[in-house]
């Protein structure tokens, strides 16, 4: 009887994939720079030391959650409230990991859980576009995420140290960079006409939730789940027809 050969499929975690991801991530870091600056400044304003600010940025690595937690910061630190805020706001990351399963299923151990540990919205978008292009190298996600992580650490540190000196007003156009990044991310995610209904509904639902005065993460969660459900219903009807 012949022994089954070890699977000879192309490696699922390559240095080349990591470099590709890092390059793609680097282009997006410019959108995250002002955001990191703001978080560093907020941490300084709340009395966190540089070490504490960097620990938070490095271990949490989630801008909106950090900003919200810092807004409700107290002395002594609000352990439970900050933890809960991080959990609720970052719930949106849970379906992202699931959506990347075709890529992540091919790796294990530190490559799998480590890649998930640094997953962020922007690296997720890049990895989905890469996956849809037929490339299944999990190192792409790790490369993109770690590039953004390094940028995040630097900008939080700069914001903490120089924030008081720079003093940009909150509505400054520079802070539009993170929104402009979201707008340009939509381009590689667009697959065609069939995306129109789920995307449109996602926008309408998010606007409605926002208009009702719901804060983060609810507009995003309601819009994303509602739009995706509409898309899934549409697929189901097409399959039956």
């Amino acid at each position: 009887m012949q022994q089954p050969q070890p699977a000879e499929r192309p490696s699922s975690f390559t240095a080349a994939g990591f470099r590709r991801g890092a390059r793609a991530g680097l282009a997006l870091t410019i959108g995250l720079m002002p955001f990191g600056l703001v978080v560093g400044m907020a941490a300084d304003a709340r009395g966190l030391s540089l070490l504490e600010a960097l620990l938070m940025c490095g271990l949490v690595f989630a801008g909106t959650a950090q900003l919200v937690a810092l807004q409700l910061w107290t002395d002594p630190a609000p352990i439970l409230a900050a933890t809960l805020a991080a959990f609720v706001i970052n719930l949106r990351l849970a379906p992202m990991g699931a959506a990347l399963a075709p890529v992540l299923d091919r790796v294990q151990g530190i490559r799998l859980w480590g890649s998930l540990a640094v997953l962020v919205d922007n690296s997720f978008a890049l990895a989905i576009a890469e996956m849809r292009a037929g490339r299944r190298d999990a190192a792409f996600l790790a490369g993109a995420s770690l590039t953004m992580w390094a940028n995040w650490m630097v900008m939080c540190g700069v914001g903490h140290v120089f924030g008081a000196a720079v003093r940009l007003p909150p509505g400054h156009p520079v802070f539009f960079a993170s929104v402009a990044a979201l707008a340009s991310i939509l381009v590689p995610l667009w697959r065609g006409r069939a995306d129109l209904l789920p995307w449109g509904l996602a926008g309408v639902l998010a606007l409605a939730a926002h208009g009702l005065g719901l804060g983060p993460p609810w507009p995003v969660l309601i819009g994303a789940l509602g739009g995706a459900a509409a898309g899934a219903a549409m697929d189901g009807r097409r399959a039956r027809a």
């Binding site: 959506a99 926008g203 998010a206 819009g223 995706a228």
Partner: peptide, 16 residues
């Protein structure tokens, strides 16, 4: 739903 989620998430981020 997971197939449709990526675009929907970013539109829902962007609109508000």
């Amino acid at each position: 739903m997971l197939q449709h989620l990526p675009g929907a998430i970013f539109v829902a981020f962007l609109a508000p």
